[in-house]
Design a protein around this nucleic acid. Structure first.
Lengths: 240, 240
DNA sequence: AAATCTGATTTGTGATCACATTATACTGAC
DNA sequence: GTCAGTATAATGTGATCACAAATCAGATTT
């Protein structure tokens, strides 16, 4: 028997819809919390953290915090300096360009594969999210956090449709590193609306998906990543 | 001051060649040991591990072992089942194909970039390693472990020459997952020598690098990965 | 015989403690 | 003021302990 629930003799159709009892370890929940916090841009680059401080804020012992922090460190979302200090990594232009190049390759694969396998319902969901996205983009005071969330959901519907779990995990790791910056850029881009000469890559993506055109889907996605990346690089906030 | 050594007033040319005192945490050393052990194919897929067992074998407390194991788990080199059990992941054909596709994309980028930046001395080193490789390949009883090590060193000279640290770390993570399998395949391929119609991809790679031809270097590397991958898939040892 | 139950053992997880190392505040000398 | 030196506080690391959950062996029932 694997779990307590599985030990019951399940009569088909009677208990099969039972929600599995959720049990995550403390370390895992703290990891997720910190991850979302980082993605939302709530921790700024260079900021130093301490285990005891985090533990006190979360009301747990330093132990599970240690685990969560070390996991984020191996994913590149945090950094342990040789002095054993923990901090949020600073994004340099070189690091950002490298990240972008890797993303173009991997998310491009995901786009191609998704174009072949995605169900039309998921294309509808992407289209709906894009409507929300452009609507929020058009507002006078666009909500950067909301834009980021919508954009992220939109992209990950695509990536999940590729049905490549290892690729998905790798892409998630990359987003974890660049998330906060995207967050900033979206707000800026929204405020500088009006003179936006770049095509609507999301819309092109949807068209490519509907046609099952893998190459077109990849081109649209690459255009989206590149335009966002160029914008961030052009803003000049990045050191080095 | 960062370290004790740096606190000394270093007279240029007198102490500057002092070897930095090496201090790695226990967890890090255990991680490296387990990683090399996994890469060498000493742990077979599906094998179950326990923290206390490893700790006893290494003569340390379970704590640093826990850290090393969890790090390997986030890198995909180990697996923690929902039952909290730890085991070496089993490689399925689907997972292997996905891995190969990601490797083609990322190691292809590294090959291109390396072709532009590599110094001729490193090309010589690659050429020398390839000589060793073909020599070992030609022996009656080829040493699979040695073949794997030579092949790995050869590839990583290339990847380091690309000077993309993030890309390098990602590629290392991928090798960590396929390492054991390559290990097996190389032995098999060496034993089935004679009827080997595939071109010498390593040699083509060296030629491409000398010509600074990024496209040729990528093609050669892709050919190498594909031929090794096809061989492993054809052997049929992989489940599912 | 095969399946179910039950108790003992072992597992990973989290808390607490000890310690070497590092950062920080403080002092005094020039 | 600026810098070297020192003492105090705080940090990450690793060991040890406690505990719930999982595993396994043997007993019992169907």
């Amino acid at each position: 028997m694997r779990t307590g629930a599985a030990a019951l003799k399940v009569v088909p159709g009677s208990l099969s819809a039972l929600a599995p009892v959720e049990s995550a370890t403390l370390g895992l929940r703290i990891y997720r919390g910190l991850r979302d916090y980082l993605m939302a841009g709530q921790l700024h680059p260079g900021q130093k953290l301490t285990l005891r401080e985090l533990a006190a804020a979360l009301n747990v012992s330093p132990m599970p915090v240690r685990e969560a922090v070390r996991r984020l460190a191996t994913e590149g979302a945090l950094e342990t300096l040789p002095n054993r200090r923990i901090r949020v990594p600073v994004m340099t232009k070189a690091r950002f360009r490298e990240l972008l190049r890797i993303r173009l390759a991997l998310e491009g694969i995901a786009a191609e594969e998704a174009a072949r396998r995605i169900r039309s319902g998921d294309i509808d969901r992407i289209e709906a999210l894009n409507s929300e996205f452009t609507r929020e983009m058009g507002r006078r005071q666009a909500d950067g956090a909301r834009l980021f969330r919508i954009n992220k959901d939109l992209h990950f519907i695509l990536y999940e449709a590729a049905a490549m779990p290892l690729l998905l995990a790798t892409i998630e790791g990359l987003w974890l590193q660049i998330g906060p910056l995207l967050h900033l850029s979206l707000r800026t881009r929204a405020n500088s609306k009006g003179r936006n000469p770049s095509p609507d890559w999301h819309k092109r993506l949807v068209r490519g998906l509907r046609r099952r055109d893998a190459a077109a889907a990849r081109r649209a996605l690459e255009g989206d990543l590149r335009s966002a990346g160029d914008q961030i690089l052009a803003e000049g906030d990045l050191p080095e």
